[in-house]
Design a binder for these strands. Structure first.
Lengths: 226, 226
DNA sequence: GACCCAAAAGGTGTTGACACTTTGCTGGCG
DNA sequence: CGCCAGCAAAGTGTCAACACCTTTTGGGTC
């Protein structure tokens, strides 16, 4: 809104201009800097970031693929609207996908990877004991944990889908709904159960635990939003 | 390859130029007209279709979102490579996603929709009895059936994912691997089981049956490709 | 004052041209 | 003969300008 706030693209990551634009916009949307449902004016945004409309349109196309913006022909693009219903839908997706990821991970993860996951969990446990307030860090830790399971499935389709698309949508919901789950302790315990299932190389159990875990989160949400 | 084969875009669907290009290329890739792993030269393709490179790049970006092409910075885009391993991965995704779709559909489908599905199945049954050879039509029917389940879930995320992205990849595999399943009869029976679960409004059973159905297809594939 | 039509302003879709990167070839050197 | 430097050709990334669509605004009429 502030006209003087020309956002300079950090030339940090050395990809193409479109890549940097994509990351910048993605972050801006996830962090809520670009409000939900707000219309995107290509000329204005291009001017703000000091790039041409062509590059901007390419970046927007990628955002559309992530479901972060919606575009209608001849009408322009808008930042996606976050309804409670859609959030529920996403958690239903997660239940199915991450459940399958856990099942596959129980077979495909190396013992070293599982051990590393155990170390991470131990660290989380200490953080929960010590500082009850570090909610943000716990959130990050939760995402880390789920990430490792997904990657552990070794299924590239699954990894791309969850880590490159759904992940950002989920982060957007977390940031903007400002949800600090009251159940970090329970979540931690469920993570431990899952670790046990992985150690036992039990795909059936791993999927069951993960699905129950995601379902619990969803139920918690449904209650908080109702 | 044939230089004289200038492909004229049918102005059939009235969307934007990029939309039509996207559909045309999508079809060309799925049908195998553009071979797997082949490099895409932007100037040549643009000239062939009589459009500018800008529009073509926009269409390619969408194809990339469907996982039909892979692009590397400064190196260009290639049609995706179809390995047996990736096909397995896709069926693992389908097992999770369509299983969840069936679960949700058992709760969300209207009775009218379920009845319509029953009519469709009856039709399929007759086709199988009468003409053993109409494989293509059966394939189309199979896709129709699965489509209706997915749409019946009423989960927009799920619908978009399966019907707009994965569907085309799957069709590409089917066309190019030229797979005529020897198990259309068994598949039909499994479809009937699923219909019963839907009629009984039993989510648990619906998911179980659908997952088993997809898993059977996968096992059948693994055997055929080994 | 309300409604409708028309013109203009703003915005998106599309294009051709320019700059930089990668690739393949050519020629000289060890 | 093989290898590396350097150049040329092709291709991708980016840009500014043009064409069409949508929306709004202004004027005229009922």
């Amino acid at each position: 809104m502030n006209d003087s706030s020309l956002i300079a693209l950090e030339p940090s990551t050395g990809g193409t201009l479109t890549d940097r634009l994509f990351e910048a916009l993605q972050q801006a949307i996830v962090e809520g800097e670009m409000p939900q449902g707000s219309k995107i004016s290509e000329p204005e945004l291009a001017r703000r970031h000091g790039v041409s409309r062509g590059s901007l349109r390419a970046a927007i196309a990628r955002l559309e693929a992530c479901k972060l913006v919606e575009r209608k022909p001849n009408l322009g693009a808008r930042v996606v609207e976050l309804s409670a219903a859609q959030l529920i839908e996403i958690f239903q997706l997660r239940e199915a996908l991450e459940g399958m990821a856990a099942r596959l991970a129980a077979q495909a993860m190396t013992t070293a990877e599982i051990d590393a996951l155990g170390a991470l969990l131990e660290q989380h446990g200490q953080q929960i004991e010590q500082e009850q307030g570090q909610v943000y860090f716990q959130k990050q830790g939760d995402l880390d944990f789920h990430f490792r399971i997904v990657k552990g499935s070794k299924n590239r389709q699954l990894i791309a889908l969850l880590c490159e698309d759904l992940y950002h949508l989920l982060r957007m919901y977390r940031v903007q709904f400002g949800m600090r789950s009251q159940r970090s302790r329970q979540a931690f315990d469920e993570h431990c159960y899952l670790l046990n299932a992985l150690r036992a190389r039990d795909p059936e159990m791993a999927e069951l635990v993960m699905r129950q875990h995601v379902r619990s989160s969803r139920r918690n949400l449904e209650q908080a939003l109702a």
